[in-house]
Design a protein around this nucleic acid. Structure first.
Lengths: 327, 327
DNA sequence: CCGCAATTCATGCATTTGTAAACTGATTCA
DNA sequence: TGAATCAGTTTACAAATGCATGAATTGCGG
């Protein structure tokens, strides 16, 4: 049962957090000072964390796992790898990967030179938004490069682009379309609508893209919620698909599997992605190992943000699977 | 037992903090995962906090104490007041005041429009630096507006200006001079040195200044360590001094007390400070109530950053002390 | 090889934190 | 009126944390 309206005002939560985090008082002390129950203080702090009101930042997040990053770079043939330490017991890849992506993005934006970048969507990007601290890039535009699903979750197309834009103090441009066209609808005709045509033109001038990927299983939100009824996971697997990038399915060598499906995907085509100057993929989880590898082979990745669990698998899988070739 | 040399390197501390803060593991879990003692993990986290590697930011620090801020504004006749909740038991005003100043500064810089600002020095500004997250303002210059003391602490003139510049990604310019000239040394002659003359010219174009103040007691670092031998606190008090701003002493109405002393202070003159577009004073503590009030009367303050303890005293003192006049 | 000094480790314990269950007191509604 | 509902408090307790203590280990000079 959804019980809402336990309305502790933002001011109350803020003051509690201030005492707790800045003044380093105990929860009991805060409770006594503010004349409330300790329970309320405890809840307020948890709410604040949940709402992302307190942002905990670790300076220099890239100094760990350096050796891994180096070997991962050469193994996958990419320009840069960021490997974060994951929690192996309560394994959740979204949070650490998102946090690392947020830090990386902040650093890249600080370096300057970007006037727009594209974003897909997913839980990893949602986690990154929650970790971003407020910034100000009035001349930056966040461009959605993938249609959305009917379920309007926060990690859906609209929420991701606007979330990045809000945190970064930037503009955004949304792809107001479903991720897959109905069967039989002509792609070119559909995309010729004025609003979409204008949006698609932005794809040609992106300075960077933030990509994610997923495998073909019900762990993938796209597969479990976004696929049209006629497209079954089984049929995709039959064609050799091991996962998707931007709704377009690849086999284990990074080749497109089905032109029929790709043509129905509303978003940036992979051919166009390959021409973007900076391609950052954030993806982690054992089930994504193969599709990450495929995306790298396809040349869709300059920088990979992942965790150590996935990194290890990526390297061992690569070794056991691929024949020894000249690099 | 595998006995490896576990250095307390930055990488180690970073990874511990990553697990603890991002992955929300317990210290014991982190210890087990990384194969070290729990004590080491505990110490690493404390070290990280102490070193300022983990920055905890609270999103909206200005929403608390709103009523107080409003009444403080009208009581003191200033444009803006930021009142932070202090820890009344283990009373330390530097941390919360510094944290609030850091947040305010970040916001003002995000708004844009500053090309340089002046800083004095002191523990409050040191605390603000520790709270600042890394930013990038390549066209910004931090200008030291007060000479330093012989003791080269981190909160001394050099450390403060360079600290702000490092955190903000800005340039800085140092006032390489003692805070007080030797007795008898001609001010104009001394300041005519090329390096100093150039520096002093920057005072004319500052967009803002970050000021502090102190009373006349050994709580004041300036008084206890920076005063020339011939200048005793007693003699200053005798002349009616209740505290200083930039090494220049004021009486309770904000009038300069001793031209002789002021002339020996190497820094921005208060007359010049009054012409700066944005004057931000960060000061808290019961012993600073009178000098804060005096500084406001003198017109040295547009924005006051303080804590609730001091704010209350400021308002009650104002009421009890001043004759009832028309607002 | 021994013993001394300096670390580092294991252990124990008091405090703090997170969470569930029982309680209270007001409000609603049959 | 009195049971049901609900918001919030109190109580209780297990887990996590911070810290101190003595034991064990290491380095090193004699």
């Amino acid at each position: 049962m959804a019980r809402e309206l336990i309305e502790d005002s933002e001011a109350f939560i803020t003051e509690v957090c201030w005492h707790y985090y800045v003044n380093e008082m105990t929860q009991a002390e805060v409770a006594r000072l503010m004349d409330v129950t300790r329970l309320r203080v405890n809840q307020a702090i948890q709410r604040a964390r949940q709402l992302g009101m307190v942002k905990i930042q670790i300076e220099s997040p890239f100094t760990t796992r350096i050796e891994m990053q180096e070997s991962l770079k050469s193994t996958l043939g990419i320009d840069r790898a960021v490997v974060t330490p994951a929690n192996r017991d309560a394994y959740d890849y979204h949070q650490p990967t998102g946090a690392a992506l947020a830090a990386l993005l902040t650093e890249r934006l600080r370096a300057g030179g970007w006037s727009s970048f594209g974003v897909s969507w997913g839980l990893t990007l949602d986690a990154a938004i929650a970790r971003l601290t407020k910034q100000n890039h009035p001349d930056l535009e966040v461009v959605s490069i993938l249609g959305g699903t009917a379920q309007g979750s926060s990690f859906n197309s609209f929420g991701i682009a606007s979330g990045f834009a809000r945190a970064l103090g930037a503009h955004y441009s949304i792809l107001t379309a479903p991720i897959y066209l109905s069967e039989g609808l002509d792609r070119d005709l559909f995309l010729s609508q004025f609003a979409l045509r204008e949006h698609f033109q932005k794809f040609d001038n992106l300075d960077a893209v933030l990509l994610t990927c997923s495998n073909v299983s019900n762990k993938s939100f796209l597969v479990s919620h976004g696929l049209p009824n006629e497209l079954t996971p089984a049929s995709l697997i039959e064609q050799g698909a091991i996962g998707d990038v931007l709704g377009q399915f690849l086999d284990k060598d990074g080749n497109s599997v089905s032109k029929a499906v790709d043509d129905r995907a509303v978003g940036m085509l992979l051919e166009k992605v390959q021409r973007v100057p900076e391609k950052i993929m954030a993806a982690a989880g054992p089930h994504k190992v193969e599709i990450i590898r495929a995306a790298c082979k396809r040349g869709l990745v300059d920088t990979l943000v992942t965790d150590d669990v996935t990194a290890e698998l990526l390297m061992s899988a690569e070794l056991s699977d691929a024949p020894p070739t000249a690099k």
